[in-house]
Amino acid sequence: MNYFLVKSEPFKYSWQQFLKDKQTFWDGVRNYQARNSLQAMKTGDLVLFYHSNEGKEVVGIAKVVKEYYQDPTTTDERWVVVDLAPVETLKKPVTLETIKADPLLQNIALVRQGRLSVMPLTREEFDRIVALGAG
């Protein structure tokens, strides 16, 4: 199993909307490194959902339910989407400030490459953030 983090501005697509929708395709990625992470996602992989700009916090866990395919919002074949479904809301959102202060999370892309919208995590990093969100 692989682990990832995706970012969304809550005013564009929030965790609450995701819960209502029950599933969505993750579109709008226009960065090659983020696209490569989408292409690496396999069905069943777990994904942390991060609210960027407003909140700046991990709020939930999702899973990949369909592997990458052509982004239906563009005809440009370079861009892909995956389908995600929500799994669980974290009891306590994990803020960027908390992540930056945690010695075990110093090397994650969220800290090193703040503008990247889709990024891989190690199992240890994923598990640490989930533990912090357990309250």
Rank of each mutant, 00 (worst) to 15 (best):
Y50M: 08
Q113Y: 13
M41A: 07
L38M: 06
D76T: 04
Q17N: 15
Y32A: 10
Q17V: 15
Y68N: 05
S37C: 12
L84N: 01
V80K: 10
E9S: 13
N2L: 09
T74E: 01
K91I: 12
A34P: 07
G133F: 00
R30L: 05
V87L: 04
L110D: 00
L116A: 05
L121V: 03
R78N: 10
K100N: 13
A109Y: 03
E77P: 06
T122L: 08
A62N: 11
K92T: 07
L116W: 07
T74N: 00
D71R: 01
T24L: 06
Y68F: 13
R112G: 05
I61L: 08
Q106D: 10
I129Y: 03
P86L: 05
V94D: 02
M119C: 03
T75I: 12
P72R: 10
V118C: 05
E124L: 10
T89M: 09
Y3V: 01
V94Y: 02
K56I: 06
P86E: 03
L19R: 14
D27C: 14
A134S: 12
E125T: 09
E125P: 06
S117T: 09
L121F: 02
L132I: 05
V58L: 08
Q39E: 14
E57G: 11
R78V: 04
D27Q: 15
V6Q: 03
D83L: 08
Q39I: 15
N2G: 12
E88I: 09
L90P: 04
T73D: 02
T43V: 14
G60L: 00
I99D: 00
L46Q: 11
I108V: 13
A34D: 07
A85E: 06
K12M: 14
I108F: 04
T73C: 01
R35Y: 08
Y3L: 04
D45E: 13
